[in-house]
Every structure is written in structure tokens, then in C-alpha cells.
Design a protein around this nucleic acid. Structure first.
Lengths: 195, 195
DNA sequence: ATTATAGGTGAACGATCGTTCACTGACAAG
DNA sequence: CTTGTCAGTGAACGATCGTTCACCTATAAT
């Protein structure tokens, strides 16, 4: 017979369930999850988890996950400041990458960079870009554009001389479209994943 | 009296509820959300939404969100291929940034880059880095390390001569620690958000 | 005009939820 | 040793859920 689980261990179980099932368990499922026999115990545990900030209980009794449960991470300051103390860490905001980087999920796509035309802008081959369709390109945006039948990333430059596309690599000359320019979307973020 | 909502409009309502409340609505809430009077109508609508791939109904009748509802984006191929046809787009995998970039949310932190010592590695001032605590640094990892009381990002180089930290910018010489080296964590991803 | 289908309604039923109350045992504090 | 607190149990109750069945109306297809 194992010793009773701590609150943190129960939070871990709940988080694992949430990430696996994309929903919070019902009362019957929580009886099994926490090895309880009493729904009142579940009721009380949820109060304690709300105090711990991992769930929220609506006015109608409905249970929601907070960012703390759903895989968000802690948002700290600048690199040079490093990590704060554990107490300060505990108070740090949480941030969901999905929510922070994507405002229109249905219009946003992830593509992999294969060329080096934007190297000086810090966009390397193998990087990932989030491209939002249907967003009007503005001066200095990085855009996904079609040039000579091939898609490419470039700066979108719009000045007194009209519109042109510029690479961020001196090996690639600016492109002035003769016909209409086809912009697939605007780059909203660049991501480089290690290991 | 408005015309009846299409399935897609109902999916949009459901997605908005999910992103606002971090849970799916119950039957009573869906009556209000979709302007229904009958729980059987909700029941049938959920079948249709499951066929559309935006929710999943478990063996126990419990409702879960799929990635399509929860803000994931479509994963396409390489930039040079651009966007596929609408039919191909529909079949594309979805990907959640939270799940893709973060394997240990509780041990991962986001910090903002302020220096230029890693410029040649495509890490610019203003970029965001995801740093995972408690992960052992390996050769060629980008790490968050403490040098002379200040935290910095560097390559972690481990060879026959021992351990040293190298910048990705010729203006910064390699660092060979005289005392023990303090590594705060390993950089798992770099993110640059535009606009 | 007839038939079929889609998408809604209402009712009924058993299951589950959400909450309250009284209680118990273990443990900590005085 | 006594008292207080915490975290669980069990029971009860009304509310909500999840599902099935029969039915209706609008629309499309024949």
C-alpha cells in the first residue's frame, strides 16, 4: 500500500492527463486518477489546486485548466540577468507559445527554410518560419513570395520607387517584379529548434 | 431572426469558447452557444464536428478538443515549395508549438537576448530563447552560462583540452573557466517574433 | 408530385456531476 | 494529554450530461 500522494504529485497526474487527453477529467475519472473513493475528496482537492493556480473553477462549477497546467512556460527577463530566485520564478508570468506567436491559427502555417538568402536577418537553412496568409505585407516585412515560379523569403520593400524584394544576403540582388507580385503571406516568427 | 449557422460558423464559435475558457462547453452551455433548444441537436452536431476532425469523443462519451480546435497550425514543407493546394492544405498535419518546442514545461523558461555574442549563430538581440534547466550540456550545445557574475549565451565546447565556452561572433574570445563553470540550462529553441 | 435526407425538437432514462453535511483518523501544536 | 487542523469517507440531493427514440420541417433529388 503506497503512501498518499502529495499535492504536487496529483498536479503532475492531472497535467499528464490534460496533455494526453486535451481535456480535464470528470469526477469519476479523477476518482481513479487519484485513487479516491469519495467525490467530496475530489471536490476539496480541486479547491486546493485552484489555490495553487493550476485550475480555475467557474461560477457555474465548471473546471478549466490554467496555463500552469497546459504546458505554458515561465517568462523571465533578459539573458544577462539569468534565472531569478526560486521565489521570483514562482511569481513569473507564464506564456503559451501557441497563444503568443499565433493570432490566427487557421491562417498560419509552418514551413522549413531551405535557402540562405535571408542569412543576415538571422534566418538560416533548417529554421522554421510561421507564415500568415491573408495578411497585407507592409514595408520591411519578411514575406513569402513567388519569384520565377519558386517561393522564397525576402524583405518586402515599398518606397518612392515602388515595390521590390530584397534578400538579407549580399549574394542575392534585389528583385523588382515586372508583372504583379505574388505574396503568399507574411512571416510572423522564425523558430530554430535545437536537438 | 437570423439564418441558421453553418457548421464552420459553429466550429468557429466553439474554437473561440475553447481559447477563452480553456475547456470545451458542457451541453447546457452549447445550447446557448449555438442557439439550440435540444440536447439531441448538440449530440448530433458533435458527431458532425468529430467527422470534421475538430473534436474527439471518447469511449466514455467525453469530449476532447483536437489540435484543429486548440490553436495548432498547419505544418507544410519547405519554403521553396510554398503553399500546397487547398485540398493538400486540408490534409496537412497540425502542430502545436507548445508541444513541439517544449518537452518539460516546468523546467523551461523564456528569456530575451540582449547581447550580440551569438550573432553568427543567428541569435540576434531581441530574440527569445527557450532554456531548459536541469539538462546536461553536451558538446556544441548553446547554453546559458554564468561568466564573471553575468549570464550569457555561448556554445559549450568539450574536447581533448577540456571545456570552454565559445561565442559565435569573432569579437568575443573563447572563455576557459578557471573555477567551476556554472551552466544554467541548455537552449532548446530560438524564437524571433515579428510585429 | 413524391421521396429522401439533413438538421432540428421534445421526452425519457440512467449516469455523472457538483455541492453540502456529518463524520473519521492521522498528525501537529500547545 | 488535549485540542485543532487536514484530508479523506459516505450519503444525499438537485443539476447536468449523454444517449435513444419518435417526430417535424425544409430542402434537394428524382
Amino acid at each position: 500500500m503506497r503512501s498518499p500522494l502529495s499535492l504536487q504529485e496529483k498536479i503532475t497526474l492531472l497535467s499528464q492527463f490534460y496533455r494526453r487527453e486535451h481535456r480535464l477529467p470528470g469526477y469519476a475519472e479523477m476518482l481513479t486518477l487519484f485513487d479516491y473513493r469519495s467525490r467530496n475528496a475530489v471536490f476539496k482537492l480541486l479547491r486546493r489546486m485552484e489555490l495553487a493556480g493550476v485550475v480555475r473553477i467557474g461560477a457555474n462549477g465548471k473546471l478549466s485548466a490554467t496555463d500552469r497546467l497546459s504546458g505554458a512556460i515561465r517568462l523571465l527577463g533578459q539573458v544577462k540577468a539569468g534565472f531569478p530566485s526560486p521565489a521570483e520564478e514562482e511569481l513569473a508570468d507564464t506564456i503559451s507559445l501557441d497563444e503568443y506567436l499565433i493570432s490566427h491559427p487557421a491562417a498560419t502555417f509552418m514551413l522549413t527554410v531551405s535557402g540562405d538568402s535571408m542569412l543576415d536577418a538571422g534566418i538560416h537553412p533548417g529554421d522554421l518560419v510561421l507564415v500568415e496568409k491573408g495578411r497585407e505585407a507592409r514595408h520591411n516585412d519578411v514575406v513569402l513570395a513567388q519569384v520565377d515560379g519558386e517561393w522564397t523569403l525576402k524583405y518586402y520593400i515599398c518606397d518612392a520607387h515602388g515595390v521590390r524584394l530584397e534578400a538579407a544576403n549580399r549574394r542575392y540582388p534585389p528583385i523588382r517584379p515586372r508583372q504583379s507580385l505574388q505574396i503568399g503571406g507574411v512571416v510572423r516568427a522564425v523558430i530554430r529548434k535545437y536537438r
